[in-house]
Amino acid sequence: MTVTEQAAPARTHASTLTATDVVVEFPVGRGQKVHAVSGVSLEVPPGTTLGILGESGCGKSTIGRALIQLPPPDSGSVRLGDLELTELGSRDLRRARARMQIIMQDPVSALNPRRKVKDLVWEGRSIWGHDGETPKDVLVDDMLRSVGLDPDAVRDKHPHELSGGQCQRVCIARALMMDPEVLICDEPVSSLDVSVQAQILNLLETSARSFGLSMVFIAHDVSVVKNISDQVMVMYLGKACEVVPSDEMHRTSVHPYTRLLLASIPGEPQDHPHAQQVSVELPSPLDPPSGCRFRTRCPIATDRCAAEEPRMREIAPGHTVACHHVAVGADE
């Protein structure tokens, strides 16, 4: 029995987060632009987790932020259920954003150093109003307990008095307090120690289940992403290379870049022919290569890869890949 089947009835939300052809560019002067995200589409069905995997500069954080319109994409659409987020006015957008929360990489700088934990956790609710019967203090304490903190010990502390792992728990409590439908986690564990990382990953996993959340989980660590996601999207230089069900991704993924990432896991054998890397620098996102953006580092690149951009094709149910050299049905 898979966990998703088991968890399905507990989910309360029903909105699918969909992004279509999202483009985010940052002007850097002299008419030049950083092509941070160039036409990425994704779908996060309710109650599932999409992992976004890639190296620094691939646009994975930018797409995560574009989903909550921070900043809004230059073109393309982001929909939460029936709501088109890119067309909303600022008032409606504020309202919609309350349904989506984000967890940042560095939990200490994500928290206002001058506020106490109880106020930090309550901040969103104090803006949005609290109309329930239960007193504020009880809700805050409950939430702190549910993220594994002892309310009596941390309630009146400031962020600097807590460890990194505790601060990340406060950030998660703060996000969950808004009862969001979608939680975007941008490298939530990369600044934490190994043993704390496992605690936070478990907390996110169980919270997603008990709060009925959809998650977008952004990270650079293949094993971490695989472990928490239902589907994994691999990005390279602003484009999606491959979307693959997480379950067997270490066997079924076929894009040469995904293979390279898998081969880079310490201790993994480099048996796959695509794992060998042509050692060149990451191209500049100011002037990305023509055709397939990975071709400059790809061991199997041909002339066609420079001339023609590969499109995303479905090679198996739920498994799409953008590579000229992958035959349909090649998915072992």
Partner: peptide, 14 residues
């Protein structure tokens, strides 16, 4: 406590 590429998705870590 390290997630392994071999482990099944959504399994809790030690």
């Amino acid at each position: 406590s390290i997630p392994s590429i071999e482990s099944r998705p959504h399994s809790l870590l030690a």
